[in-house]
Simulated scan of single mutants.
Amino acid sequence: MIQRFIRTLVGAAVVAAFAGSAAAQDSKVADELAKYREALADGNPADLLEVKGAALWAEKRGPKNASLEQCDFGLGPGKLDGAYAQLPRYFKDTGKVMDVESRLVHCMVTLQGFKQEDVTKQWFSKPGTESDIEALVTFIGAKSNGMPINVPATHPEEKKMYQIGEYVFYRRSGPQDFSCAICHGQDGKRIRLQELGNLTTKEGAGTAMKTWPSYRVSQGAVWTMERRLIDCMRQARFPEPKYLSDSIIALQVYLQKNATGTVMETPGIKR
């Protein structure tokens, strides 16, 4: 009995020692990652894409030879300051809840006369080819820099999309029976060296949402929130949703409502 008790105490001490070592290692890794991100932030390549987006916004293009300066993102035609931080939202003219990308494409079609299939053909950049949509979203997003996210989802259609987004977040799917919540529904999770924020909380959702669009160093390109979410689903082996799909917009409503009150810091920069 005494020997068993002693073995238990020794075992507990060993576990505690390893736990302490792991915690110290985690702290060291977190510190190094913070230094890495701080170094990257000095000269964000996304700034160049923001400039390109500003030029595209004012340029007369398309069959109607018109600019996007009358595009209404919810605050009135051409008013961009703080608009991104209040998206997705319900738009009466379309009868739909729209995010920044679906609204932008809508304006490119209605104001400039482009066909949707043409403007969305290159919705994300590829090696050697930049995306006009990514440039425009970077420009629009930067107009909300320093402003709080404000997506209360009070309109009935917004409430519905929030509920759909919450369902998508928790729904297990795919060959691995996975869900967004498995990685992002609890505190203290990590995959390799990457911290996984708890997106069900204001702090976690805010940290995730406030810096998008972001320049991804590993990809050498700016990613929009739609691209990030679609890629997350691809990695989880889900059936990959289409660009501008309601499921992606609904998921953004869920995350932006959770992040409401967090101050935007965009364009961001990621690993």
Rank of each mutant, 00 (worst) to 15 (best):
Y36C: 08
A24I: 15
E158A: 09
F73T: 07
V10T: 12
R37L: 13
T8R: 15
N150K: 06
P213A: 10
C71P: 04
G261Y: 04
A58F: 01
L229W: 01
Y243F: 15
Y215W: 12
K64D: 13
I149R: 00
V29I: 14
V105R: 06
G206E: 05
R4L: 13
E166K: 14
K159D: 08
L48N: 11
T138H: 07
T211R: 12
T110P: 02
F124Y: 14
S27L: 14
E166T: 05
A153W: 00
Y90M: 11
V119G: 05
E265T: 12
V168D: 07
Y162L: 12
G43F: 13
A13Q: 13
V217Y: 05
Q176I: 03
D177F: 11
P267K: 05
G197D: 10
A41T: 11
L33C: 02
K92F: 10
M147P: 00
L111T: 11
Q122E: 11
R7T: 11
D47I: 12
N145H: 13
A30R: 11
K143G: 01
V109C: 13
W212E: 05
E157T: 09
G95Q: 07
R190W: 06
S21N: 11
K121P: 02
K52T: 15
G185W: 03
K79F: 10
Y254I: 00
E101L: 08
S27W: 13
K92C: 02
L229P: 00
C107K: 05
N44D: 14
Q256N: 04
H184I: 03
M264Y: 06
P156M: 01
T154H: 01
V222F: 01
R228H: 11
E101V: 09
S247M: 13
L251W: 01
K257Q: 13
R89Q: 10
P156L: 01
C107S: 08
C183Q: 03
V105S: 08
G53M: 10
K79Y: 10
F169A: 02
Q176D: 11
V10P: 04
P88D: 02
L196M: 15
K92N: 12
R216Q: 14
S179F: 03
D47G: 12
P63E: 11
G82I: 06
D93V: 12
K35R: 15
G261D: 05
R89Y: 05
Y162R: 06
T8Q: 15
R271L: 15
G74A: 09
I149V: 05
V109A: 12
P127E: 14
I133A: 04
K60V: 03
C107Q: 08
S245D: 12
C183T: 03
